[in-house]
Design a binder for these strands. Structure first.
Length: 444
DNA sequence: TCGCCTAGCACTTTTGAACAGC
DNA sequence: AGCTGTTCAAAAGTGCTAGGCG
């Protein structure tokens, strides 16, 4: 079974023994992640996957399901998923294809979904495919349920993170790796645009079985006319003419890796995201591509001198985001809700604080830092666990209207660019890490 | 008018409590 | 008392679509 395997891209020395990943962290270079149901994903991807997002939250289909190997059987890991913008455009469905409709809107509060089995030993994760069935997407920026917030008509792809940690609290100290799969790229929509996607979903999603049998839906079908989602006049074309940006390269050659790597794209453009028009230039399929750089990453934890774990949370600077083109991710320090200090692992995990790396060297570090003034800062990225507020950390630090959007510049502490913070590792420029926080605040 | 979003609908699958049997 | 399997109502998950909004 041929999956997209994204080779780890290690080019760093093993972490010091003082780090919580300890010597084991280095062995994580053997971790392999493969996408389950790749054929299904491909069939969607070839048309142009659309994921419905609704206010109350909508599951993904196909579901994110992955297999893992190479984990340490007795070491505990936490699995996380977040959604990463593919580019900095807003799209629209015009006739039979997707077109760029303008610049992307400011990023909504960034959240991370924590797999409900987390933490669990490596043996648990490896014994069977890991499904993120409960993951839900919403377009409600004020969502209080912890769903992942996305913008409609924007493109994203899931990022899978493996964190070696004994519990949710120690994530901040742990090494983690990130994997992405190009065929999981999707356009978030509030209503289906491409009828081929609708049909594919109905054919494959058990919950859509009611729409599968034409005989039981004569009334519905008869009523379908010229709704927004139904575009009968365009049907003849949809089968033959896919959106140009989704056209698979015929020769199966690997597409320029930066195209698929948000990190790479960030390097390419000043805005940090791909800004060239994707229309007509986007041979997205890279089936057969062995690696997306930096599809997998190893984050090396490090600590700020003088700040122990006990004080790290409340004093962390969350949220430097500064992701060009997504400058509004950062919640306002004064307005955003405060997570429980001892539970605010999100703050410590904010990649906004992480030393940056080039796409080729995605090795980074989990940073626990403080603002120049030592003032606690808020987080722009939420960890979401299906355990809910009651079970997990008892805190729901959901975003507030005030944190979205929010200015970026004043959240950027000068220390971020200090090479000394990186424990001697070279991580490239800061911008890469600061552009899209992985974790910014906890929602527990 | 257009592009996008939403609520309610009818339908399905999934979930979990209650119960029975061993 | 504990475990397993079955039943079934409730909950949750689907796409469809009329209508609303800017």
């Amino acid at each position: 079974q041929e999956h997209h395997y994204l080779k780890p891209n290690f080019s760093v020395p093993p972490p010091t023994s003082s780090m919580t990943g300890g010597p084991d962290a280095y062995h994580q270079s053997n971790v392999r992640m493969t996408l389950e149901d790749p054929e299904l994903w491909k069939s969607f991807h070839e048309i142009g996957t659309e994921m419905i997002i609704t206010k109350p939250g909508r599951r993904m289909f196909p579901h994110c399901k992955i297999s893992l190997t190479g984990l340490l059987p007795y070491a505990k890991y936490i699995m996380l998923v977040d959604m990463f913008p593919v580019d900095s455009f807003r799209y629209k469905w015009n006739k039979d294809k997707w077109e760029v409709a303008g610049k992307a809107e400011p990023q909504p509060p960034c959240r991370t979904y924590v797999h409900p089995d987390s933490p669990a030993p490596g043996s648990h994760w490896m014994k069977q495919p890991v499904s993120f069935l409960k993951l839900k997407l919403t377009n409600n920026t004020l969502d209080q349920h912890g769903h992942i917030i996305l913008h409609s008509m924007h493109r994203y792809h899931p990022r899978f993170h493996i964190v070696q940690a004994d519990d949710l609290f120690s994530v901040r100290w742990s090494v983690f790796q990130t994997f992405t799969f190009t065929e999981t790229t999707f356009t978030a929509v509030t209503a289906y645009q491409n009828t081929k996607i609708t049909k594919l979903k109905i054919d494959h999603n058990p919950f859509a079985k009611g729409f599968r049998d034409e005989g039981t839906n004569t009334k519905r079908r008869a009523h379908r006319s010229h709704s927004y989602t139904e575009r009968p006049a365009k049907k003849p074309n949809t089968d033959r003419h896919r959106p140009s940006e989704l056209t698979k390269s015929k020769d199966g050659t690997t597409v320029k890796e930066e195209r698929y790597s948000p990190w790479g794209a960030e390097q390419d453009t000043q805005l940090g995201l791909r800004t060239e028009s994707p229309v007509g230039t986007d041979a997205r399929d890279v089936y057969g591509t062995e690696q997306l750089v930096p599809a997998v990453a190893s984050y090396q934890p490090y600590r700020v001198h003088g700040y122990g774990r006990s004080s790290s949370s409340s004093s962390s600077v969350g949220s430097i985001t500064g992701r060009p083109g997504y400058e509004s991710r950062v919640p306002d320090v004064d307005e955003a809700p405060k997570a429980h200090p001892s539970l605010d692992m999100g703050s410590a995990l904010s990649t906004s604080q992480l030393p940056t790396s080039s796409p080729q060297d995605y090795t980074g570090a989990l940073n626990v830092a403080v603002t120049p003034t030592g003032k606690p800062a808020m987080l722009g990225h939420t960890l979401y666990t299906p355990y809910g507020a009651e079970q997990a950390l008892g805190q729901w630090g959901g975003p507030t209207p005030g944190q979205y959007p929010a200015p970026t510049a004043h959240h950027l502490p000068a220390e971020y660019s200090a090479p000394a913070m990186h424990h001697g590792y070279h991580h490239g420029n800061i911008a890469d890490w600061s552009q899209y926080p992985l974790f910014s605040y906890s929602c527990w």
